[in-house]
């Protein structure tokens, strides 16, 4: 339980979030509310750890998600007592709290106004500017959010999180080339992130499936990205799933493409034979992963992902039978 409290809770399944927030009153009672660094009591009470405050923050997020505003408010209060109201991160957290309890769009706009006031005073307040962008997205002003995010990455180009967010925003707008560029920036900062390689492969695959002339280029590139993600991570279900999809698609489109002239200077399209072999490998690996996770040998995989992989394998099997 404490292990899941020490990491950001956004990806947790709802049941875990519910469990965490149900235990919040107990957790709050058991943890010290105020730790002062200049009193005699520090001699015998437990030492202050950085993890404690991370846990408060994550607990607050879980409580807000499940609607337990009282506990969330308590967490926020304790954090404020410790770090002061002028702390940048706490400003963002307080804004998040107000966003969560806002009744309607007018209240949200008021929060947005507060963010803008804070940013007018101190434009370098990173957490608050991130919150402002997130709130713009919540309000449905995606284009404004993209503009703001572009300014943000201009001033802080090594923030991988912002680049990844920008890529997702571009994808929602269907602007694939821009999204691909943003994700490539993420990969410049974290070159070994196997999930980002897979994500880039997915976006390239989506771009390749739109059906314009450069579709095969995108598909080939996506194939390479999926291969890289598998290279970085053994038995990566998402990577093999994408590899299978990309090779399936390439196998249908490559025979026509090979007749066209290859005049451009970019990387050549992969061999038909290579693609076939990759497809076979992906099928074999996927079926092995599905078999092993159904039999309960490995439990790390997401259940939904395994079901999707199984469905993909089944559809491929029926196609070959026909």
């Amino acid at each position: 339980m404490s292990s899941s409290l020490s990491h950001p809770p956004a990806h947790l399944p709802p049941s875990v979030a519910l469990q965490l927030s149900q235990q919040a009153p107990v957790t709050l009672r058991n943890t010290p509310s105020v730790i002062s660094s200049y009193s005699l009591s520090t001699l015998w009470s437990a030492a202050e750890t950085p993890e404690l405050w991370t846990e408060y923050e994550n607990l607050m997020l879980s409580c807000l998600r499940t609607g337990d505003e009282q506990s969330a408010g308590q967490c926020l209060e304790r954090l404020t007592e410790r770090f002061g109201a002028e702390n940048e991160r706490l400003m963002a957290l307080r804004g998040l709290f107000q966003e969560a309890i806002a009744k309607d769009d007018a209240a949200l706009k008021q929060v947005l106004g507060e963010y803008e006031n804070i940013l007018a005073k101190d434009p370098s307040n990173m957490p608050v500017s991130k919150r402002r962008i997130a709130l713009l997205k919540t309000l449905g002003k995606t284009t404004e959010a993209i503009t703001a995010l572009n300014e943000f990455v201009d001033s802080s180009p090594t923030d991988a999180e912002a680049w990844a967010e920008l890529a997702d925003l571009y994808v929602t707008q269907g602007m694939y080339p821009q999204a691909i560029f943003a994700l490539e920036e993420v990969l410049l900062i974290t070159p070994y992130a196997w999930n980002i390689h897979a994500r880039l492969g997915e976006i390239l695959f989506m771009a390749g499936s739109t059906g314009d002339s450069s579709g095969d280029k995108y598909l080939a590139e996506s194939l390479r990205r999926f291969c890289r993600s598998i290279e970085l991570c053994d038995d990566y279900l998402r990577g093999y799933y994408g590899l299978k999809l990309a090779t399936n698609k390439l196998l249908t489109s490559l025979p026509q493409a090979s007749r066209q002239s290859k005049s451009d200077s970019t990387l050549p399209l992969p061999d038909l034979k290579t693609v076939e072999r990759l497809n076979e490998t992906a099928t074999a690996k996927l079926s092995e992963i599905v078999r092993r996770s159904v039999s309960g040998e490995c439990e790390g995989y997401d259940k939904g992902e395994v079901i999707a992989a199984k469905a993909l394998l089944d559809s491929g099997a029926t196609k070959t039978i026909r």
Partner: peptide, 22 residues
């Protein structure tokens, strides 16, 4: 996975959407 934060992105968390989903 240390790079999962790049996909969950706690800095840009959309709390209202999460509440709705929950």
């Amino acid at each position: 996975n240390p790079f999962r934060v790049l996909e969950s992105r706690p800095g840009f968390i959309d709390i209202r959407k999460q509440r709705k989903e929950f």
